[in-house]
Design a protein around this nucleic acid. Structure first.
Length: 150
DNA sequence: GCCAACGTTGGC
DNA sequence: GCCAACGTTGGC
C-alpha cells in the first residue's frame, strides 16, 4: 500500500467535484515521470492527497483512493479534447490514467505555506524547489505527519 | 501577470 | 548526443 499526492487546479477539477462524482478518471497526465508512477506503481486501494494548485491557497484539501489501476488515457486519442496527443496511438498508448474515488475532505485546507514550516516535511518532493510533478509518492511517515496537522 | 524552473523538441 | 529554443507549470 502506497501513498500519493495528486495535483489539480480547482478551477478545472476540485475536491468538491470529486465529492459529487464519487469516482472519476484522472485525465490529462502528459509528463513521463508522472505517467510512470500511474502506470507502474499505483495499486488499487492506495491513498492519495488531493492537492489544489494554481489557486488562492495552494494546498492539500482531501483524500481519495485509487479505485482502478492504469488504463489508456482516451482523451489523448480525441482531436476535440484539450489533452489530445496525436503521438499516442491507441494500439500503443503513450498516456495512462487511473480512476480515483472520493474518501473525504480534510477538516481544513493544509496549505503549501504551512507544509513548508514543518521540518519533518523538508524532504517532501512537493517542497523541493522547482518541482512541477503533478503526481508524486508520499512516504507513510509524511502522510501520517500531515494528517496529524489536521 | 510575472517569471523561475523544468521538460520536450529538433537542428546540427 | 548536445544544447538552444520553446512551451508549460505553478507559486507569488
Amino acid at each position: 500500500m502506497q501513498y500519493w499526492l495528486m495535483k489539480s487546479e480547482p478551477d478545472v477539477y476540485s475536491i468538491d467535484d470529486l465529492r459529487k462524482d464519487k469516482t472519476d478518471h484522472w485525465e490529462g497526465i502528459r509528463n513521463y515521470q508522472a505517467r510512470n508512477f500511474i502506470r507502474d506503481e499505483m495499486a488499487r486501494g492506495d491513498l492519495a492527497f488531493f492537492y489544489h494548485s494554481s489557486c488562492d491557497e495552494p494546498g492539500i484539501t482531501g483524500i481519495m483512493k485509487i479505485h482502478k489501476t492504469a488504463y489508456p488515457d482516451f482523451t489523448a486519442f480525441d482531436p476535440e479534447q484539450k489533452y489530445y496527443d496525436p503521438k499516442s496511438d491507441p494500439d500503443n498508448p503513450r498516456w495512462f490514467m487511473v480512476d480515483v474515488r472520493y474518501v473525504r475532505k480534510l477538516k481544513r485546507n493544509i496549505s503549501l505555506k504551512e507544509l513548508k514550516l514543518h521540518e519533518p516535511l523538508n524532504d517532501m518532493r512537493l517542497l523541493q524547489r522547482g518541482n512541477r510533478l503533478s503526481i508524486m509518492p508520499v512516504t507513510e511517515t509524511e502522510w501520517n505527519y500531515i494528517l496529524e496537522l489536521e
